[in-house]
Nucleic acid binder design. Structure first.
Length: 156
DNA sequence: GCCAACGTTGGC
DNA sequence: GCCAACGTTGGC
C-alpha cells in the first residue's frame, strides 16, 4: 500500500451526519452514500495513499482535517440500486486552525478552487498549489504537512 | 427559513 | 434530444 499521494481531493460531510470527531474516533471509515455521478467518478479516480481535506458543510463551513485513502473504490454497500462506489478513509491530521469557507473565498491564491465554484459537489479534486496553501493557512508546518512524494505523518 | 445553483426525471 | 418541472444541497 502506497503512502505517496498521486492526487489531492476534498470531501464534504455534514457534521450532523458524520463529523471529523467521529472520523478520528473510528480511525478508518468507509466513505459511503455518494449519489452524484461527478462525485462518484472522483471517488473512483482516487488511489490508495491519496489525501483529502475533510470539510464540514452546513454547520462549520470549514476544512477541519486530512484523511488518507486506504482502500480504493469498491461497490457502495449502502446502495440498494444503481452503480455507486465507496472508498475507505483514515484520519491523518487535524488542522490546528480550521480554514473557513469565508477565508478561502477572500483569498486570491485560492481563486478557481472547485469548492468555491461548485458548492454542491461533495467530492472534488484539489490542485497541489491549493493543497499546500490551505495546509499553510491551517497551521500545518512543512514537516507535518502531507505532500506529494514525501512520507506522510502518523495519524494523531 | 429562504433561495440560488444545479442535477435528475419525464413528457413530448 | 430538448426542456420544464421538481428535488436536493448548502450558503446566507
Amino acid at each position: 500500500m502506497s503512502q505517496i499521494p498521486s492526487a489531492y481531493w476534498l470531501v464534504k460531510s455534514e457534521p450532523d451526519a458524520f463529523s471529523w470527531a467521529q472520523q478520528q474516533a473510528n480511525d478508518i471509515e468507509p466513505w459511503t452514500g455518494v449519489r452524484n455521478y461527478a462525485a462518484r467518478n472522483h471517488l473512483r479516480a482516487m488511489r490508495v495513499g491519496d489525501l483529502c481535506f475533510f470539510y464540514h458543510s452546513n454547520q462549520g463551513r470549514q476544512i477541519v482535517g486530512i484523511v488518507r485513502v486506504v482502500r480504493a473504490a469498491y461497490p457502495d454497500p449502502t446502495a440498494t440500486e444503481g452503480d455507486w462506489s465507496a472508498v475507505d478513509m483514515q484520519a491523518v491530521a487535524t488542522l490546528p486552525e480550521p480554514v473557513t469557507l469565508a477565508t478561502m473565498k477572500q483569498d486570491p491564491a485560492l481563486a478557481g478552487l472547485d469548492l468555491l465554484r461548485q458548492s454542491r459537489l461533495s467530492v472534488m479534486p484539489v490542485r497541489a498549489a491549493h493543497w499546500h496553501h490551505i495546509c499553510a493557512l491551517g497551521g500545518l508546518p512543512d514537516q507535518a504537512r502531507p505532500q506529494r512524494g514525501k512520507r506522510s505523518p502518523p495519524a494523531r
